[in-house]
Amino acid sequence: MTAPATGAHAGNGRRRFVAPLRGHVDAACFRHPLFDGYGEYRDLLTAPHWPDIEALNARMPLSGTRFARQDAGLLADGLHYEARTAQGCIATRADNWHDLFNAMVWLRHPALKHALNQQQCRHIARMGSRERSPAQQALTQFDESGVIVQVRDAALLDLWDRHDWAALFRANAARWHDGGITVAAVVGHALMEQVLVPGRLLVGKCLVVLGDPADVLKQVIESMSAGAILTAPSELRPLPLAGIPGWHAGQDAAFYGQEDYFRPLRDGRVYPRPL
């Protein structure tokens, strides 16, 4: 999608995020753990020049799907972005971080992106293009700021349910390294864009898989395609990503005490069961 970036800590402002110029980005930011799993595409981010559409298409693993330069000629077809994508044409702005990260997620997780597009098109067919259902809002939030988290220890999920951030992140720091809780995949391209600016406190919109299934992503894709998940934004669990051990500098007690970022649980807020 090409919507404005979302998912930053409210303390950083709600104005539209403006990414820095390519030449002003420190390539060290791409070593952030958020980019784990995207190592084979790092050259697209660190090369002196923007990759062209042909270079992106050469790496597209999904048959019948291609990136196309978004210009007046492409938009003249009058199609909705999602409808055009469903026809195998992903509109992509040139020299644009947001769309480059979107392309990178397509390259890494094509089946997931295809499932998101299918669901968006299903709801557009039902609602029309002028109104957006709660499901469309949830799908968009996940597409922009989504993180898939695997939790093997149900006690950690209980801490997350209660927003006991100090216990989840600090007291159980070892569990983030021994498999008790794991970031299985970052799929939100808006989150990636915001890492271009060092020090931003990001919040992921998470789907949670409990237990140890053979293929976490496959389970998410199948549930999404069946319409069993992402039916409303309230299904997405917020996760202050800077709290994950090793994801931010200075993770001391005072850091985890910042209630404007590590927010207490709202009265009446109940999260749905994980997958």
Rank of each mutant, 00 (worst) to 15 (best):
D161V: 09
K218C: 10
E222M: 13
D161R: 14
P233V: 02
C121Q: 11
A184M: 05
L44Y: 07
V187G: 05
G13K: 04
P274G: 10
H123I: 04
A184Q: 10
L75R: 07
L139M: 06
V186D: 06
L116V: 05
D164E: 11
H109T: 12
H123G: 00
L207F: 04
W165D: 03
W106I: 07
E144S: 11
H98K: 05
L275V: 09
A228M: 05
T231Q: 13
A135E: 00
C206G: 02
E144L: 15
R132H: 08
A232F: 03
G179C: 04
R93D: 08
L159T: 15
A10F: 07
A91F: 09
A68Y: 08
A58V: 12
R200D: 01
L210E: 14
A27G: 02
A167N: 10
D77L: 06
G39A: 10
I221E: 09
D143F: 05
L159Y: 13
W165V: 11
H24E: 13
A47M: 10
I53V: 14
G128V: 05
D52I: 11
A249S: 08
Q150W: 11
L265N: 01
M192R: 13
P134K: 02
G243M: 00
H177A: 11
L21C: 10
V208D: 05
G37K: 12
A28G: 12
L236E: 13
R237C: 03
D153Q: 15
D26A: 13
A138D: 03
R263I: 10
C89Y: 02
C206E: 02
M192I: 08
H114S: 13
R269E: 13
H177C: 07
N57D: 11
R22Y: 06
W50K: 11
Q137R: 05
Q119V: 00
V220C: 15
D77K: 11
D26T: 07
G227P: 12
H9E: 04
C29I: 14
A10D: 09
P134Q: 03
W160L: 15
L159N: 07
L112K: 01
Q137N: 09
L74G: 11
W97D: 02
Q120E: 06
S63P: 15
G39F: 01
Q136T: 10
G39V: 03
Q219D: 13
L44F: 14
C89N: 04
K205W: 11
S145E: 00
D71G: 14
G243Q: 00
A19K: 07
D95F: 09
Q137D: 09
T231A: 09
G268M: 03
Q251C: 00
G204S: 07
A19C: 09
D212L: 07
F255C: 14
R31L: 08
L34T: 01
A3M: 10
L159S: 13
